[in-house]
């Protein structure tokens, strides 16, 4: 059963100039974690705020379990939101932060205590009830914010870039914990992020957004391996996008050429760095090594084509390459785009 349905939702801000979300539709299945991914200004946060009830859609329909919630105020929606800045109430301790929503629902004190303790246990903050929230670390504050939403057992959990203010290590640890909790509770979740790593590692499906519209909705591995548009190809992971021309089944660009079985005309060739084999060239060089970066587990070689176009190749042994060396390029997997759509994949 699809628990959250968003149908043809648009949001035009009062000035009438900005169409933040444009005819957006999405079905989120029961227990699914969907990531809204896109650059700043792509409309992902506005969309999440509309689901949470903090923004009113200009048009469209939103339902949860078949019930129209399009114009229901946030305090009456079966949703729980975790904000980027935690938004904890600093005049309350951890227990009171969590108990506030339950008190408003007139839950019995014993039941409040039981539920708060259970959810604190779930987020790994057992015994922190009496702590003042301002004295907790960033990670602990984010867990309290998550617990505050979970304690109310919402039908839909909304996460608005919840790890944005945390450092890299903490972010990685928390996203695993959040994913574990989400899967354990089987709670339907909509997660906004502009971090591809977060989206790729956590989501059941990713919605890539651009200018308020959907570019692609798919499973993370499909988004990564089979991007449908040059925008998605360039936005997810590192991708070499080479603009060139196809003539008689050969794609060429500044001395570099490779077979591409599509009709003649301009095309954008997309090659992942890990799908590009390099060999030191004697003759017939297609590019020069500009810089080699050794990451320990692998290396990244920055190459310059003959017209100074820069591309990257991932190599297992970076010590074999040096700046200034001539190389030949052999792509193992490519995609080609024309007019914004994929025309070839191999």
């Amino acid at each position: 059963m699809s628990i959250l349905k968003i149908k043809d939702v648009s949001k035009i801000f009062a000035s009438g100039q900005v169409r933040a979300v444009d005819n957006f539709s999405l079905d989120v299945a029961d227990g699914e974690l969907v990531c809204l991914l896109g650059p700043s200004g792509s409309g992902k946060s506005t969309l999440l705020r509309m689901v949470g009830g903090f923004e009113r859609p200009t048009s469209g329909l939103m339902t949860i379990d078949g019930e129209d919630i399009t114009h229901v105020p946030p305090e009456k929606r079966p949703t729980g939101m975790v904000f980027q800045s935690h938004a904890l109430w600093t005049h309350m301790n951890v227990f009171k932060n969590l108990a506030f929503g339950l008190k408003l629902r007139k839950v019995a004190p014993d039941e409040i205590k039981r539920r708060v303790e259970a959810v604190l246990d779930l987020v790994g903050l057992n015994g922190y009830g009496t702590r003042h929230v301002a004295k907790l670390s960033g990670g602990q504050q984010q867990r309290v914010a998550l617990a505050r939403s979970l304690v109310l057992e919402p039908k839909i959990l909304l996460l608005d870039e919840p790890f944005a203010s945390l450092d890299q290590h903490l972010r990685e640890r928390l996203r695993e914990e959040v994913r574990d909790i989400q899967q354990r509770l089987k709670i339907t979740t909509l997660f906004v992020t502009h971090g591809q790593d977060e989206a790729l590692s956590m989501a059941d499906r990713i919605v890539v957004m651009r200018d308020g519209r959907t570019e692609q909705i798919d499973r993370p591995e499909v988004i990564y391996r089979e991007p449908q548009t040059p925008f998605v190809a360039g936005f997810i992971g590192t991708m070499n996008l080479i603009e060139g021309n196809v003539a008689n089944g050969i794609f060429s660009k500044a001395g570099y050429s490779t077979p591409l079985p599509v009709g003649d005309g301009p095309a954008i060739m997309a090659i992942r760095p890990e799908a590009l084999d390099l060999a030191i060239a004697g003759e017939g060089s297609q590019g020069k090594v500009h810089r080699v970066t050794d990451y320990g587990t692998h290396g990244l070689v920055d190459l310059e084509l003959n017209d100074a176009t820069r591309i990257k190749a991932m190599v297992p042994h970076p010590d074999l390459f040096k700046a200034g060396q001539s190389v030949t390029l052999t792509p193992k997997a490519i995609a080609a785009y024309r007019d914004g759509v994929v025309i070839h994949r191999a």
Binding site: P74, E75, T79, F83, Q84, L88, W89, H91, F100, S149
Partner: peptide
């Protein structure tokens, strides 16, 4: 009193009076 603190209170079910009494006035 940040907008997000207000929105978080509305999110857990606080109406106007509860918002004023439990969130805004103490802050």
């Amino acid at each position: 009193v940040s907008n997000q603190a207000i929105e978080a209170a509305r999110d857990v079910g606080a109406g106007r009076f509860a918002l004023l009494w439990h969130i805004i006035l103490p802050r």
